[in-house]
Each structure stands twice: as C-alpha cells, then as structure tokens.
Amino acid sequence: MDKQVIVSPSPHVHSGESTSRLMFNVVLALMPAFAVSLYYFGVGALIVTLLAVGSCVIFEYLIQKFLMKGNPTITDGSAIVTGLLLAFNVPSNLPWHIVVIGSLVAIGVAKMSFGGLGSNPFNPALVGRVFMLISFPVQMTSWPLPVASRLQYLDAVTGPTPLAILKEGLKNGETISQMGDKIPSHMQMFMGLMGGSLGEIAAFALLIGFAWLLFTKVITWHIPVSIFTTIAVFTGILWMINPETNADPIFHLLTGGVMIGAIFMATDYVTSPMNPVGMWIFGIGIGLLTVIIRVWGAYPEGVSFAILIMNAFVPLLNRYVKPKRFGEEVKRNG
C-alpha cells in the first residue's frame, strides 16, 4: 500500500452521539416551558433567561480561558443548559445583578471549581439557586403572577405560590377546605396559572419536554418516575390520614419545582447515578426528602434541597450499587 492508512483499535464505527447533541436536545426539551413562561411573564422571563444563559456561558469561557488556562469548551452546550435551568428556577422579576451573581456561583463555584463538566458533585443550577435563595430571600420569594404584568420586569404584580399559601394557611390554623379558593384548581396548576419560578409552573409544557427527552433517549424514565411515584405515594398516605391538613398528591406533584426538578434537574447526567437501581434509590430519596421538607420543614418548597442532598449520595450509589452483571444469578460451576 502506498498511501498511509489509519490504524485504530475496534470499534471502527461510532453512533454519532455527542455531548453537544445531548445538550441541544435538553435545550429543545426546555423550549415548551420557555414559550409558556414568555406568554405568562413576558418581558421579565425574557430578560432573566437571556441574562442567565449569557452570563453562564461567558463565565465558563472566562474561567476556562484565564483561570484554568485551557481550551474553552463552551460549544458543548452544558453552560447553556445550566443557564436555562438557573433562569427557570428564579422568579421573572429577579433583579439583574442577582441573576449574574447566581450564574457566577453556579458556574464558578459549583461547576468549574471542581474541574468543570463531568466533575461537579452538585447540580450547578441548583447550587446557584439555593445560594440566591439564602442570600436574597426577599427577592427570591416574590413571585410575579402569570399573565398579570407581561410588560413589567422589576415592578411586576406579585403573589404567593400555592405551596406558600398552604404553609401560611396551616400556620394560621386554617384547614385546607377553609382556604378554598385561595388555592388554584388542579387544572389551573397543570396549565401553570399560579405564582412560581418562571420555568417551573407549567406542568404540561415540562411533560412535553420529558416526552422529547425520552424520545431522543437523552434520559431514561427511571429518575423522574421514581420521584413522581414516591411523592404521590407518600403524600397520598398523609392525605388519606388527614385531608384537612395535608394536600392531595396531585397538588404536590403539580406545584413547586417537582416537575422541573424531577425531569430536568435530577436527571442531570453528572450528578445522578449511572445505573437503574441507583437511579431508583436516588429518585425515592428525592421524593421522600421533598415531602418531608414541604410538610414538616420551615421552607414551603423542598425539591432543590432534596436534589442537592441526594447529589451528595451519588458517588456512594455509583460505588456500591452495581448493575446486574450478565450471568450473575447463576452459580459458577467448578
């Protein structure tokens, strides 16, 4: 042979799957929810989202280029996903400087300080969110009401989330039936007509995204389904014990960050277990912790904390929960 051929170990073909394609599909899956939030919150949603995505990408680029002195890999799209998720987890009237600080914490502290994509133990967007929640509790818990003020950004009309209404009401000794109309109906909650973070409210849009992620095989069903099941069963039991002080399971599934958390945050590759059994344990843990924080904790909402706590167990789960090996159930002969 006179020409130089290539020699490489097998396999000689590749599926064509790539990190950027996976991230692109996640971005696509988030688009229905983004469209809904644009419709509900208008200009505020647009500003916060663009700001978060932009600052995440820029921070990642700057840190990789100047602090880590490496080749920036922003083209893999992971910073875009982090930015989107961060924006989806904050109110649409959040002042711009808080968004930028949150992005810096998410990318700089939660992701890059551990070595960048693939090495961070905690979900960057959630770390950013929890940081903002603790540092700026007032701004982070004033929720613009959907549709009410599409053209205002900082001065949008605000109101409480259903979970906050519930927590507040119970604290004042009211029963759920007494709260009555203050709590939105299931259908309203499914459509997202309630106060909340800009991307977490519309359950139907998030479920469309879930279907897309499953269809493109970006994620498997294990984590979301295990979280949904655990929350439904746990709150179902509490509801059956006393429906006057405990909300029904559908309420719990549709409110707060359960949908976005289970579908997009908990399934983050880097911070979730690698095999189905581990995924189930992870999902059940998130479900239990979420309900415990919601029902007995000081915060009305607990998905973020639940996911972050379970993130910490992922290395353990990966280490001790092994996939079932081929030929394991049969005893070795001789």
Binding site: E17, G118, V270, P323, F326
Partner: peptide, 16 residues
C-alpha cells in the same frame, strides 16, 4: 472530550 457520566456505556453493555 470529558466523561459527562451519562451512563450510556453502562446501559449498552451487554455484560452488565
């Protein structure tokens, strides 16, 4: 590029 711990290798391994 870097491993993103997506677990695809685990799910496609025929030997578990």
């Amino acid at each position: 590029s870097v491993c993103i711990r997506c677990g695809k290798c685990v799910s496609v391994c025929p030997m578990g």
